[in-house]
Design a protein around this nucleic acid. Structure first.
Lengths: 195, 195
DNA sequence: TGTACATCAGTGAACGCGCGTTCACTGATGTAC
DNA sequence: TGTACATCAGTGAACGCGCGTTCACTGATGTAC
């Protein structure tokens, strides 16, 4: 080969990473192809040398964001309940709320993903299942599958609470909501098996 | 006046109501002015006889959706815990999940609202405060203000869980999540004051 | 070592289209006398 | 009662613009000999 495969691979990764940030910040419909490519230091036409369509890039970026969330946050956390508490306390910090581009893809994109095409929804679902396996392993170390639903509901609860904190114009109330979110999430993980 | 004020008022209300449905179904960025007006049986240009911009219509429609949610669902519910359980059980039905246009504006639009202009975020915040007052009155009939935060977090948790159920491609898992949502929401409202 | 050539990542103008907004206009309505 | 007129809700073409996508092209790179 004339060029190293490496270079094109790296560019592809850069496009996916910067697109993930832009999509979270401006939304899927709110991010144009020209902007997405400019973020990666490229021009609009280049997209189609890497992806068959904007939709394909979106699905890939969503998958990558979910993977990054898992590898960077969940997999890094301590095992057991301590790790979950760590994740929860980080999740509900004002920093994570205010920095949408670096933040949780679930909170930033969930309702737009629900309206998206099947490939994007599938990419999201696959990513969510990996994420919640990390939760479940810490919820029930000796029987993770038994905690899958609880883990899934924890994810939904966390994302919704963060979205709401972002939407409110009353900053003080929004901050108090984050603290309440921590309390609720901890109560949820500490609730008995019958819950 | 040559025309009855009534007629124009009715048309305005019709625009707001159909726009609310369209916005929830296709998103804010996903709903064009021509479509929004066509839904009300009018042409694109008419919008500006009623609103100063699309943004103004969006903010008005969001306010109306929140008001409708309050008047149609929350205010109708029985007083006390029984009413809350009623709301929660309705909220997490597959019907409410699958019928986005008739459903909850929080679940349909929360992350787009968080990205919206101030007037829209303000309209949303005002509506959310009314909604959670209805929750709080049922959570703590003798001291509603003490339950405001819990009510707010309940709203976030409900919306996020519904969004997640909508986004998943695995329908069986999505349905199980709704059931888990009911259990979590009931556990939250039954938790002691220390939560 | 130098030169001709094949490769291919990336460019950027152009396509048709829908966006939000403006505005000259139509035509049904109610009023004036 | 009939007619001229003022009002105004609603129309729909047109504005400039950005959208997603296509494609002829550029130019830097590594290869062949």
């Amino acid at each position: 080969m004339r060029y190293t495969k490496d270079h094109k691979q790296q560019t592809r990764q850069r496009i996916i990473a910067t697109a993930g940030r832009r999509l979270k910040q401006d939304g899927i419909d709110g991010s144009g192809v020209a902007t997405l490519m400019k973020d990666a230091g490229l021009t609009n036409g280049t997209l189609y040398a890497y992806f068959s369509s904007k939709d394909h890039l979106v699905a890939t970026a969503v998958a990558d964001q979910m993977r990054a969330q898992h590898e960077g946050i969940v997999a890094q956390a301590a095992p057991g309940r301590a790790g979950l508490e760590q994740i929860i306390r980080w999740y509900f910090t004002p920093d994570q709320r205010d920095n949408v581009a670096d933040g949780c893809p679930n909170a930033a994109l969930l309702d737009e993903i629900a309206r998206s095409t099947d490939p994007t929804r599938q990419a999201y679902t696959d990513g969510a299942l990996v994420l919640i396996d990390g939760f479940a392993a810490r919820l029930a170390p000796h029987d993770p599958p038994s905690a899958r639903l609880k883990a899934l509901s924890l994810l939904g609860m966390m994302a919704g609470t963060l979205q709401l904190s972002r939407a409110l114009t009353d900053r003080q109330l929004a901050d108090q909501l984050l603290e309440q979110g921590i309390r609720n999430a901890l109560a949820l993980i500490d609730a008995g098996q019958h819950n």
